[in-house]
Design a protein around this nucleic acid. Structure first.
Length: 497
RNA sequence: GCGCCGGUAGUCUAGUGGUAGGAUGCCGGCCUGCCAAGCCGGUGGCGCGGGUUCGAAUCCCGCCCGGCGCACCA
């Protein structure tokens, strides 16, 4: 029996993972609130991401740029031009078209894509609906960036944009950061946070959102050293399905390759691009995604973003949605630093042997909410008609549950004592003495807590408790004094099945 | 944004014009004492707004939200 999106949404609602935002007023499409369990999991994902890509490394620096910044940033980045679509609608069949595509197909070239010139071009060339031949409506502007206003007066000069990506915060701070940290190439700047895109129709539970969390690294390399990656041995042997654009065009299946093989085949735009694709896959697997549910898919030329030379999506196989993007790894070249240098006048380039040059940039960009959904989907299993969420302990909402076998004062007191002890050891504990033990086990299985400590009669004889394993229901008995050590061992040596 | 379908306790669901019912969850009690046992009691609902009608969960209109298809997804 395969799981559906509504199974996931149902669990999410029932157990406090995630809810439609403002639901008491009917909600708002594309915006969701994370509840206690969901945010517990999401925070663990973000923490582990930060550890893997920032804290555990010496070459990546973490920052936190503002969500709203100078609107000029978005002009320079190309988002003001590229992120705005002018749409026309057929008055008869109601189909909508991008004005740009429509004019292109009609072989008409116009200099500027202002509303006026699009309107005139359509009128003067008597362009009709390509589907039904009907009359086209007035062009309308659809901006994928969400606008806001700052200051007391709400006019054109007060317009700001909610960031549609974090990357620009890394580029605009490039000079300051590289000077402060004394960074030498190659090095990266990383961040995570909320971004906003005015999607036309958000769909698929939390799959397409208007406000979502992205974690990004902008990794800067010397354009003359693109194929000199000293860290390549870290990823060389990682195996993953890779689907090149040629294979897609020729309708061939994706092929299993190691990152090393793929690089040697010339599939990646450079060695660092291959390296970061490998690291992204490595991380996803380390938090519980099965390798067979992942693949790297190269963007076709028509899909490439305005800034990208080559992009690979890491796609995850959602049983109810098919293969969908959860991570993108783009080679942005020197596009952004060059644009910002030209627009701002600041020198966002480096000097080597007296020669000025722009670093190239490889950008791994992680859609955290989609990864959250993938992790929940991956973990969702049914045992004896009950849901067991087999999350990796690293991303479980709590480390351990503490349950008294009986709801008697001395059992509860002992549970509280152990709870306090483990909290002092920095475990995220979950204590529950509200119901019966079987019911408590079922509940913690559903929210994915990997281990449960049970206080039973024997506890009062010899100060031992049992640790019960979510995945097997097996129990082991252990001295209370050994608990912290054992739990730490279990958490970090956990092997996904 | 267009088209089709839908929206009843936290969740699942019965109810097609006449007193909203059940299951589950949640809270309390009894009992039991290691994997959602049982019994008793309690809590909680017709997405929002307008209209038709003596009377609307039910019919009509608008909106909001969701699902599917199209379009969109740099």
């Amino acid at each position: 029996m395969s799981i559906s999106l509504s199974d996931i949404a149902n669990l999410a609602k029932r157990r406090g993972f995630i809810f439609l935002s403002g639901e008491i007023y009917g909600g708002i499409a594309g915006f969701y609130d994370y509840g206690p369990i969901g945010f517990g999991i999401k925070r663990r994902i973000l923490d582990d991401w930060w550890w893997f890509f920032v804290s555990s490394r010496d070459d990546v620096y973490g920052i936190s740029p503002a969500i709203i910044t100078s609107p000029k940033v978005w002009v320079a980045s190309g988002h003001v031009d590229e992120f705005i679509d002018i749409l026309v609608e057929c008055a008869r069949c109601k189909s909508r078209f991008k004005a740009e595509t429509l004019l292109e197909e009609a072989g008409i070239k116009i200099q500027d894509f202002s509303m006026e010139s699009v309107k005139n071009a359509i009128k003067n060339n008597n362009i009709k609906c390509p589907k039904c031949g009907g009359e086209l409506s007035e062009p309308r502007c659809f901006n994928l960036m969400i606008e806001a206003h700052v200051g007391a007066v709400k006019d054109e000069s007060s317009v700001v944009y909610l960031r549609p990506e974090i990357a620009q915060g890394m580029f605009t701070n490039f000079k300051l950061i590289s000077a402060i940290v004394g960074a030498r190439l190659p090095f990266g700047i990383a961040s995570y946070g909320k971004v906003f895109r005015n999607e036309i129709s958000p769909r698929g539970f939390i799959f397409r959102l208007r406000e979502f969390e992205i974690a990004e690294i902008e990794y800067f390399i010397d354009p003359n050293e693109q194929n000199n990656c000293a860290l390549f041995s870290e990823v060389e042997n990682i195996e993953v399905k890779i689907w090149t654009k040629e294979e897609q065009k020729r309708e061939l299946e994706p092929k299993e390759r190691t990152i090393g093989e793929a690089f040697n085949e010339g599939i990646f735009s450079n060695m660092w691009h291959a390296y970061w694709a490998g690291k992204a896959v490595e991380w996803l697997i380390s938090i519980g995604i099965k390798p067979e549910h992942l693949r790297l898919r190269e963007h076709l030329e028509t899909e490439l973003a305005h800034y990208a030379k080559q992009t690979f999506d890491i796609e995850y196989y959602f049983p109810y949605l098919g293969w969908k993007e959860i991570v993108g790894i783009a080679n942005r070249t020197d596009y952004d630093l060059r644009r910002h240098t030209n627009m701002s006048g600041e020198k966002l380039y480096l000097t080597k042997n007296g020669k000025e040059f722009y670093p190239y940039c490889i950008e791994p960009s992680f859609g955290i909410d989609r990864i959250f959904l993938a992790i929940i989907t991956e973990a969702y299993t049914v045992r004896d008609g009950k849901i067991v969420l087999r999350l990796h302990p690293k991303v479980a909402p709590y480390d351990v549950a503490i349950l008294p076998l009986l709801k008697k004062p001395k059992f509860i007191a002992k549970a509280k004592e152990i709870n306090t002890m483990l909290k002092l050891e920095r475990f995220a504990t979950y204590i529950d003495f509200s119901g019966k033990i079987g019911k408590a086990y079922a509940k913690i299985d559903e929210i994915g807590i990997p281990f449960a400590i049970t206080i039973d009669h024997k506890t009062f004889e010899d100060n031992t408790v049992t640790i019960r394993f979510r995945d097997t229901k097996n129990q082991i008995r252990i001295q209370v004094s050994e608990l912290a050590k054992k739990l730490r061992e279990l958490k970090y040596n956990y092997i996904m099945q």
